[in-house]
Amino acid sequence: MSEFLTLVVPMWVVFTLAAQGTILSGRTGVFNVTQEGVMALGASVGFVVAYKMGSNLGGLLIAFAVGALVGLILTVMTTQLRLDQFVVGLALFFAATGAAGLLYREVIGVTMTPPKIDTLTKHEIPLLSDIPVIGEPLFRQDYVFFFVVLLSVGLYWFMQRTGAGLNFRSVGENPKAADSLGINVNLARTWSTIVGSGLVAVAGAYFPLHFTGIYTDGMIAGRGWLVIALAFLGGWRPLYVVAGAAFFAGMDVLGQKAQVIGLGVPHQFIEMLPYVATLLVMVFAFRWARQPAHLGSNYDRESRLAG
């Protein structure tokens, strides 16, 4: 059990981090679909920087900056120029996917054995890490894990417990009303998308920096899309996302361990588990979970239509 948790927790970090980035912009009405590309780009940038500079923290920070840049392009094209969010998102997903491979090939080139970096070191919290079963997986982790825990609590506090958070959420629910109250709709959408996209890229960078130590094309393997499903499932709320991410991470680890588990079923069918489970969960998510009313729609303050 403890062993299983040790595998699940890092994957939980990935899902939580990327999903918090997604709901941050989603709450202001920006439906970001660039995750799959931005995570790949984050992985590529994070690896290349860590490899060249020898600093994993540098890799994470520059991955954040590059992800933020993609978010900036997305937000300028959708809030300022009011282009379709989904279409721009797709185009940026393609561009980011291309750029990820391009950067790696350009800096590293094609090698027989891929270069490897040292993964992040783990820090132990005294006493707590001695708790049986959960102590080892929860309190002996790298700093990204602790950052994600703090981020989730902080986002929850900001969104659900502060006046500024209420204003922030109102932008995604009813931008026209928010605007009439003097809330700057475009500003809220801009910063939330920039920061959110940066967090998504850091989640991508976590793959080479925590799991593998190497970068490979396609290492995100659809998790960027699962993150969007997770945001819907979590009703675009920070704490629900934390819980949902645990489910997604558990499924992910089961899928990865398919060949070891056996069960008499061809391993490919167990590997399908994360995706099939998500599809099933979506049936309920779209029936019960709420989403920001103006998710995915641009705001034109000169339009006479509601919203």
Partner: peptide, 8 residues
Amino acid sequence: QTPPTPGS
């Protein structure tokens, strides 16, 4: 309940 239709 409708899934978001991108764009307005």
